[in-house]
Each structure stands twice: as C-alpha cells, then as structure tokens.
C-alpha cells in the first residue's frame, strides 16, 4: 500500500499503523451488515448534472509565477531527477 501511495514509511511507523489500521478496518467491516441492494450511491448534497464551461480562453499564469513554487527549475521547465527507465 505504501509503495502504491509513493510513501516511504519507516518500520516503526509501519508497526504503529498496522495495529491502528486493523481497528479502523474492523469498524469498516460493519458496513458489510448494511443491506445496500438497489441503493444508488450519493456523492453530493444536491446532485448536479451537465455542469460545463464554454470553450473561452482565460489568461494562464505568467510563467515566472507558475515556476516560482517549483523546488527546481531550468530552461522554463520543472527539473526532476532521472526517471526510472521504462525500456530495457
């Protein structure tokens, strides 16, 4: 799970989490008791449909402002360490 979430976790943290997560997961298992057959899911207080914007350009950020937050930038771009090779 930690790898999927791109989280390096120390062994101590992992030990603590494991026990805590068990308690929480146990509580979640109680949802299994609920009869949800034929029940539609809900995600919003007022279900909204067809919310669109028109295809009208809006100003982008000035490049300096966009790059200002970057931990490392070069040549107008965000610099990152080498990416693991996808090709053999």
């Amino acid at each position: 799970m930690a790898r999927l979430a791109r989280l390096e976790v120390t062994d101590d943290e992992l030990d603590a989490f494991a026990g805590q997560l068990d308690v929480i997961l146990e509580s979640m298992q109680t949802l299994g008791e609920v009869d949800t057959d034929g029940v539609e899911p809900t995600s919003h207080a007022v279900p909204l449909v067809n919310v669109f914007r028109e295809d009208q350009p809006q100003p982008s950020l000035p490049r300096d402002a966009a790059l200002a937050g970057g931990p490392d930038t070069a040549e107008g771009r965000f610099r990152v360490p080498r990416i693991l090779d996808d090709e053999e």
Binding site: A5, R6, L7, E8, P71, V80, P81, R82, I83, L84
Partner: peptide
C-alpha cells in the same frame, strides 16, 4: 532526498515521507 543520484521515484517517496 534529491542527492543527484536517486531516481525521481525514490525522491517522490522520500519527499512524501
């Protein structure tokens, strides 16, 4: 954790840690 040698994947993990 960006020491110039680590991969982006490792640095992302260390950053989030």
């Amino acid at each position: 954790g960006d020491d110039g040698r680590r991969s982006l994947e490792e640095v992302m993990g260390l950053t989030r840690e």
